[in-house]
Amino acid sequence: MRLLYFAWVRERVGVGEEEVTPPASVTTVAELVAWRAAASERHAAAFAEPARLRAAVDQAFVPLDATFAGAREVAIFPPVTGG
């Protein structure tokens, strides 16, 4: 599965995307973030405050408690600031 990062989440993690294979016990986006936070100090810093994170599953915005079963792509990013 492809994991994408944008804005300061991308900067903190240090890469814009990575290929990951989460364990079967990880089913929601929030669990995915918590699992990935253990990957490195940079990931831990990026995901330290889940309340400041937003997500999209296969390019559709979802709440963090949404599941991502079968998704090809999950994106993690800060609240959007366009317009």
Binding site: F6, A7, F77, T81, G82
Partner: peptide, 13 residues
């Protein structure tokens, strides 16, 4: 313009 600000994935730096 109201919904674009909250519904589209853009980030300003």
């Amino acid at each position: 313009i109201d919904r674009l600000k909250t519904d589209a994935p853009f980030w300003k730096r």
